[in-house]
Simulated scan of single mutants.
Amino acid sequence: MKPPISIKTYSSTANLPQNWNELAIDNIFLNKDYLAILEKSAPRNMFCHFIGLFKDNELVGIALSQFLDLNKMESFGERDKCVKTAVRNTVFKNFCSHILIIGNNMLTGQNAYSFSDKIDKTQGLQALKTASKKLEIIFKNKGLKVHITTFKDFPIEETTAFQQAGFQNYFQYSTQPNMVFNISNHWKSEQDYFDALSKKYRDQYKRARKKEEGVEKRKMHLEDIIKHEETIYDLYYHVAKNAHFNTFFLPKNHFRTFKEILKDKFLFYGYFLDEKLIGFNTLIKNGEVMDTYFLGYDESVQREKMLYLNMLYDMIAYSINKGFKKIIFARTALEIKSSVGAKPMEMYGYAQHTNPFADLVFEKAFSYLEPTVSWKERNPFK
């Protein structure tokens, strides 16, 4: 018989076990430093807990949970104004406004947990299911009833472990794919990437690069981020509020906090036109993987200068030059990311409504409410 797993939840990184980072060695997004960023600058409608799993008093698993209170959201996204959107917003406010996530709602990919080889994945997932129930009680004691508990974002090969861990009563869902750019071993420079493109996409590259003439790209340091904080937030907020669907908005100090804590592992690039900041993008070094993070731009300049496409090319060029193996381009803007060479990777999640009656219709409601995005996959390479 397997020894039982004990569970501890923490609301402060100061209280985490000393050897926490030993289990986060393969994923910066479970590392104490990153968790400290969440602690200091999470969205105002998000509460984070950090979960430790113990076997014989030894730390054998770590996980992140986020509680979202959608009642604190002014807007869920302003791009789609229609009856369906209005219905969706009403349903979310009244029946789905308190969401408990095992995972990270601010990123795409498996950033939920890490287990040591002292426990198998099934055992770890069973313990996390128990941990989610404990967290429901914690929030209930604060007067916050959890409506939905969800475990997100897992590749297809992880779904078997969830079934074995007893998640059959949860609704398995798949939303927009994670766009992943794999860097060829043969590429050593941006020119190698360009040479691998077919003529149509080499022409696209040349057209975009020509359009951005006059735009200056600058690597921004902490003092620069602080100096331009108001403009940075305005550029970010413009892009965020025009997304299909939003469950949070970053606080103004988020990028400053990131740079303060992660230092050179967090890259911030500003794009200037006539000395005015017109856009920015951010990258996070995660071992051999480069994760793209939030960006922002001035819409009036973006189209004319093909700013977003040029940002994608810049991220690719930097990642090739620095020897990264892949880039996580995440969700949104699927077709344009596909046009530069990113491939879709289906991600799966598990969700359950805490009300048994609501849970019966949850699957149908989710399918109706989840924004659908039609796009065409591209293959830009020869």
Rank of each mutant, 00 (worst) to 15 (best):
Leu235Lys: 07
Arg303Ile: 03
Gly287Ala: 03
His221Thr: 14
Leu273Arg: 10
Gly296Glu: 01
Lys263Ala: 12
Ile316Ser: 05
Tyr233Val: 00
Ala243Pro: 07
Leu262Lys: 01
Ile320Thr: 03
His221Leu: 14
Tyr271Val: 02
Asp264Pro: 06
Leu312Val: 02
Ile232Tyr: 05
Phe249Ile: 08
Glu275Arg: 11
Asp298Met: 01
Lys219Asn: 15
Pro251Thr: 13
Tyr308Ile: 04
Ala240Thr: 10
Gln302Pro: 04
Met220Ala: 01
Leu283Gly: 09
Phe324Tyr: 15
Ile226His: 06
Glu299Leu: 13
Asp298Tyr: 03
Pro251Leu: 06
Lys325Trp: 08
Glu299Gln: 12
Lys252Thr: 14
Asp234Gly: 05
Leu307Met: 12
Glu275Lys: 15
Lys263Pro: 02
Phe245Arg: 05
Phe266Thr: 06
Leu250Gln: 04
Asp274His: 09
Phe258Ser: 11
Asp314Val: 10
Ala240Arg: 08
His221Ile: 09
Pro251Asp: 01
Phe280Asn: 03
Lys259Asp: 08
Glu223His: 11
Phe245Met: 09
Ile320Gln: 10
Tyr269Glu: 11
Lys326Arg: 12
Asp291Glu: 13
Tyr269Cys: 09
Phe272Gly: 01
Lys241Ser: 10
Ile284Asn: 00
Gly296Pro: 03
Thr257Lys: 14
Ser319Met: 06
Ser319Cys: 03
Leu262Thr: 00
Asp224Glu: 12
Glu288Gly: 05
Lys241Ala: 03
Tyr318Gln: 12
Thr231Lys: 15
Asn242Ser: 05
His244Asn: 15
Ile261Ala: 02
Tyr233Ser: 04
Ile226Leu: 06
Phe268Glu: 01
Gly279Met: 02
Tyr297Met: 14
Ile226Trp: 05
Leu295Met: 13
Leu295Asp: 10
Ile316His: 00
Pro251Tyr: 02
Asp234His: 12
Asn246Cys: 14
Tyr233Pro: 05
Lys252Gly: 02
Tyr318Arg: 09
Ile316Phe: 08
His254Asn: 11
Met315Tyr: 08
Glu230Arg: 06
Glu288Lys: 08
Tyr308Asn: 13
Thr257Ser: 09
Glu299Phe: 11
Phe249His: 15
Leu307Asp: 10
Glu275Ser: 14
Tyr269Phe: 14
Ile278Asp: 04
Ser300Ile: 15
Met311Leu: 06
Phe266Ile: 02
Phe266Ser: 00
Ile320Cys: 08
Leu235Gln: 02
Phe248Asn: 09
His228Leu: 10
Lys322Gln: 15
Ile226Val: 14
Lys252Glu: 12
Leu262Phe: 03
Met306Asp: 13
Ala240Met: 09
Met311His: 07
Lys227Ser: 04
Lys219Ala: 14
Val289Gln: 06
Lys241Trp: 03
Ile226Ser: 09
His254Gln: 07
Arg303Asp: 15
Ile327Phe: 06
Phe280Ser: 02
Asn253Arg: 10
Asn321Gln: 13
Ile320Arg: 09
Tyr293Leu: 11
Asn281Val: 04
Phe245Asn: 08
Phe268Asn: 07
Phe258Glu: 15
Lys241Cys: 06
Asn321Arg: 11
Met290Trp: 01
Tyr293Lys: 02
Gly270Trp: 02
His238Val: 10
Asn321Glu: 15
Asn321His: 11
Asn253Gly: 06
Lys219Gln: 14
Leu250Asn: 03
Thr292Gln: 00
Thr257Pro: 02
His221Arg: 11
Asp291Lys: 13
Leu312Trp: 08
Phe280Trp: 00
Tyr237Asp: 07
His244Arg: 12
Glu260Gln: 11
Asn286Trp: 00
Asp314Ile: 01
Leu262His: 05
Asp264Glu: 14
His254Ile: 04
